[in-house]
Amino acid sequence: TEEFVRLWREAVRHNQTLHWNGTDFIPGDEWAEEFARREEEKL
């Protein structure tokens, strides 16, 4: 979602874990980066 992408970019900028829907998205984590890339492509 647009909100997820916005929060993810913020988390990456501050190198912080994003807690989203009970899942931890960690900047630099391969799975999280791939998920975020797919979400961005949907926008």
Rank of each mutant, 00 (worst) to 15 (best):
E30Y: 12
D29N: 11
A11H: 06
F4V: 00
E3W: 09
W20E: 01
E41W: 11
R37L: 09
W8P: 01
W31N: 06
W31P: 03
K42T: 06
D24V: 13
L43T: 06
W8H: 01
E2T: 10
E40H: 08
H14K: 15
D29Q: 09
T23R: 15
R6M: 11
V5A: 04
H14D: 11
T23C: 15
R13D: 08
R13L: 15
P27R: 02
R37W: 05
R38F: 08
E40I: 15
H19C: 14
E41N: 11
T23Q: 15
L7Y: 05
V12S: 07
G22L: 04
T1Q: 09
I26C: 10
N21A: 13
W31L: 06
D24S: 09
V5W: 07
G22Y: 05
N21F: 14
E39V: 14
G22M: 05
T23S: 10
D29P: 02
G28T: 04
D29A: 07
T1R: 15
A32P: 02
G22D: 08
R37Y: 06
D24T: 12
R13Q: 14
G22C: 04
H19Y: 06
W31F: 10
W20N: 00
G28V: 01
G22F: 05
T1L: 13
E3D: 13
V5E: 04
D24E: 12
V5I: 15
E40D: 05
E30V: 14
A36E: 02
E33G: 03
T17W: 08
E33W: 04
F4A: 01
R6Q: 09
E39K: 07
L7S: 06
E34K: 09
L43G: 04
D24K: 09
K42V: 05
L43M: 11
R9D: 10
V12A: 04
N21E: 12
Q16D: 06
L7Q: 10
T17N: 05
I26K: 14
E34S: 10
D24A: 12
A32R: 02
R9S: 09
D24N: 11
R38V: 10
L18M: 09
I26Q: 12
L7E: 07
R6P: 04
V12N: 05
T17L: 11
F4N: 00
R37G: 04
V12Q: 11
E10Y: 08
E2G: 10
L7H: 07
E3V: 08
E40N: 07
F35S: 01
H19G: 03
P27D: 01
W20R: 01
L7W: 04
R9K: 14
